[in-house]
Design a protein around this nucleic acid. Structure first.
Lengths: 295, 295
DNA sequence: GTTCATATATAAACTCCTTTTATATGTAAT
DNA sequence: ATTACATATAAAAGGAGTTTATATATGAAC
């Protein structure tokens, strides 16, 4: 049975108003148009739906039964539409973000604070993991957006928007204060205990590439997975660590960490938003991205 | 938001097939028509519903959410349509019949037996009550159809179809055998104990009218509400009762009751189907009526 | 009873929504 | 490079749906 669903809109309106004329008024069409649709629907279904009297139109037994279901159906349509409206207005929605813990803390959080302030009803889920894992989850559609240290594997199915440049530096605590005055050469670092992040890690990769580009090899005394833990060890004087300057501003100001300038400087790197190129982000995601990329 | 519900049919089909072309095939329309509808729907909703790739079309986040509701909506439409089909095929349905106990037993039952045999899934409800009460319930829409002794108050909002003529007679048990040979005059009945139904009752009204038309007054010895009970009293010799010949065929054959012929005979009366004139009976009711009126 | 107001039905003409045809574009696979 | 496939676009064609005008029937009011 291939009924015209538009006709159900009219059927429902007539049923609720008990009148063809009133329904026509409500629907902003002429009374004969309503009559026409009803007759057409009745023919399609092979059932008389209304008893037409001069007082109006009332449902037959079969009409009453059909109405129950049509009403529910239309309510579903309407509910779906209302939810879409909410999503558009950012009155509801969900964003799943992938990022490293470091980036989450130092880059993502400030944006999310602002975003959540403006759109408190949007659910936000943050997944911390290795870059490779996050990319897989993004491609599976389990994540909407990643915030990563660039350059990442520039795959053509990804869309990348830089939002921030950061400077990697070497740091020590006050025990290494002497080193902060003059400029050390890279290979000189081998004279000190070094605390590096353990591979695999985006940051460690970047460090290794920088060393290789300068034909230098540094032997770390300790390799630790957690970037935060390294900073804690450095703070209590275990040695020299590798950090992102922008992420340890507080410690530098508080002089619990000191920058040890090295020649040549580590090239700046970027942090950016990674999304699937062809996907169409939902309204919440779009808004967050525009918030992070504006200006 | 005034969306075109026909477009939802197409939206749903594309979502389920993950392809505009395949949906076009299924829907027996051209691919550009589907493309057109989707774009139109997206404009109406102000939301992108599909990610179009060269591999097909997949739902966006918003599309997925809308689909949930649209699917449910369409399922309701379909369910309603299927139930209508069942009703048309008499695979389901309900009939509410009003009748006196006597008519129920002697007239309705044989028809219902046949009807139920053919359409075992139709629910049947029988309401026994006074004619006046039944008429009220019919007018309220609580009953679909009445089976009544005619003439009933011929109101213009009622449709009446005769299905049977019956003959009222006077009866006694074998004690009154003598009376069955010769023909009694009406007023002679006053010489015997009479058992009549108590007013108000359709049958008693008819009897009273008959008496009045013959300028006769009969004084009953007993007035009982239940027709059946009267027959029981008559059978054990309490006196002469007033009955419908067709309804006591068995007793007459078994000689537990004898007809006492009276001059003038009670005029024949009819039993008929009473429905609301302007109502449109449902499929089950239509079928039952046609079964009762055929031939 | 007659008139007025109201509700639905019908017919014909018209509008524009919907569909088709034809073509273009871009991607994946062979 | 070529073929196959999926969607997009434009213009033309067709018909579904709408309106206008009119008819019919009923209930209400006087």
């Amino acid at each position: 049975m291939n009924t015209n669903y538009e006709a159900y809109k009219i059927f429902c309106c007539v049923a609720q108003h008990g009148s063809i004329s009133k329904a026509a008024e409500k629907l902003l069409i002429s009374q004969p148009a309503v009559t026409w649709h009803l007759k057409n629907l009745e023919n399609q279904l092979g059932v008389t739906l209304f008893v037409r009297t001069k007082k109006g139109a009332t449902l037959t037994d079969e009409g009453k039964i059909l109405f129950e279901y049509v009403k529910k159906g239309i309510d579903n349509f309407t509910k779906g539409e209302n939810i879409l409206t909410n999503l558009k207005n950012l009155d509801s929605g969900k964003i799943k973000i992938g990022a490293s813990t470091t980036v989450s803390k130092h880059v993502l959080m400030p944006y999310l604070e602002k975003f959540h302030d403006q759109y408190p009803n949007i659910d936000i889920e943050i997944v911390n993991n290795l870059t490779e894992t996050l990319l897989t989850e993004l491609r599976n559609g389990d994540l909407d957006i990643l915030l990563l240290n660039l350059p990442t594997i520039e795959n053509k199915d990804l869309k990348i928007q830089k939002i921030l440049e950061v400077q990697d530096i070497f740091v020590g605590n006050k025990k290494y204060y002497d080193l902060t005055t003059g400029k050390l050469k890279l290979e000189d670092l081998n004279n000190y205990p070094l605390l590096f992040q353990k591979s695999p890690s985006n940051t460690r990769n970047y460090l290794d590439k920088y060393l290789k580009d300068n034909q230098t090899s540094l032997i770390p005394k300790m390799e630790i997975v957690s970037y935060n833990l390294i900073m804690e060890f450095v703070k209590i004087g275990f040695g020299i660590g590798y950090a992102t300057k922008e992420f340890i501003k507080d410690e530098l100001n508080a002089k619990s960490l000191y920058e040890i300038e090295i020649i040549p400087k580590v090239p700046k790197r970027s942090i950016g938003i990674v999304t699937l190129d062809k996907s169409i982000p939902n309204y919440s995601v779009k808004k967050l991205i525009s918030l992070m990329t504006e200006k």
